[in-house]
Simulated scan of single mutants.
Amino acid sequence: MGESNLNQDKNKFHYEKLYANYNIKNILHWINNLDEFLASATTTETSWFALYQRDFKNRIKGKKVLEMGCGDCVNAAVMAALGAEVYANDIANSSGKIVEALNEAYKFEFPIRFVSGDFLLNKLDSKKFDFVVGKAFLHHLELPVEEQFLKETARLLKEDGEARFFEPAVNSKLLDELRWYIPVKGRPSKFYKTDFAQWKKNDPHPDRSFSSTHFENAGKKFFKEVEIIPVGTLERFSRFFKWGSQKNNFKKWALKTETKLPRIINKTLTRSQLIIYRDPFKELD
Results as ranks from 00 to 15, higher is better:
1 M>W: 00
2 G>E: 13
4 S>N: 12
10 K>W: 08
11 N>I: 00
12 K>E: 05
12 K>Q: 06
14 H>E: 02
19 Y>G: 09
25 K>D: 12
31 I>C: 04
31 I>K: 04
32 N>M: 03
33 N>I: 04
34 L>H: 06
36 E>I: 06
41 A>H: 03
43 T>G: 07
47 S>N: 05
47 S>M: 02
50 A>K: 11
52 Y>G: 07
54 R>D: 15
58 N>K: 14
58 N>S: 12
58 N>F: 07
59 R>C: 14
62 G>H: 14
64 K>D: 15
67 E>P: 06
68 M>T: 07
71 G>P: 03
71 G>H: 06
72 D>A: 09
76 A>M: 06
78 V>H: 09
78 V>M: 12
79 M>E: 15
80 A>V: 01
82 L>G: 13
83 G>F: 14
86 V>A: 07
87 Y>A: 14
88 A>K: 04
89 N>E: 12
90 D>S: 03
90 D>G: 07
92 A>Y: 05
95 S>L: 09
100 E>S: 15
102 L>D: 10
102 L>E: 08
102 L>K: 12
109 E>W: 07
111 P>Q: 05
114 F>P: 00
119 F>G: 12
120 L>T: 13
122 N>S: 10
124 L>K: 03
130 D>I: 02
134 G>D: 02
135 K>H: 01
137 F>Q: 06
137 F>A: 11
138 L>R: 04
139 H>D: 06
141 L>S: 00
142 E>F: 08
149 F>R: 08
150 L>C: 14
159 E>F: 05
164 R>L: 06
167 E>K: 04
170 V>M: 09
173 K>D: 15
175 L>H: 01
176 D>R: 00
181 Y>W: 08
181 Y>S: 02
182 I>W: 11
182 I>N: 09
183 P>R: 10
187 R>M: 14
188 P>E: 14
191 F>V: 05
195 D>T: 01
197 A>M: 11
199 W>C: 13
201 K>H: 13
205 H>R: 02
206 P>G: 06
208 R>K: 07
209 S>Y: 09
213 T>P: 00
214 H>G: 03
214 H>F: 14
214 H>S: 05
215 F>K: 02
219 G>R: 11
219 G>F: 02
220 K>E: 08
224 K>H: 09
227 E>N: 05
228 I>S: 07
228 I>K: 08
232 G>E: 01
232 G>Y: 00
233 T>V: 01
233 T>R: 02
233 T>C: 04
234 L>V: 02
236 R>L: 05
238 S>I: 00
240 F>E: 12
243 W>Q: 15
244 G>N: 14
245 S>A: 10
250 F>G: 10
252 K>R: 13
254 A>V: 01
255 L>C: 06
255 L>W: 09
258 E>R: 11
258 E>F: 09
262 P>I: 08
265 I>L: 15
267 K>D: 15
268 T>Q: 09
272 S>Q: 07
277 Y>V: 01
278 R>A: 02
278 R>L: 00
281 F>K: 14
282 K>T: 08
282 K>A: 11
283 E>G: 04
285 D>G: 08
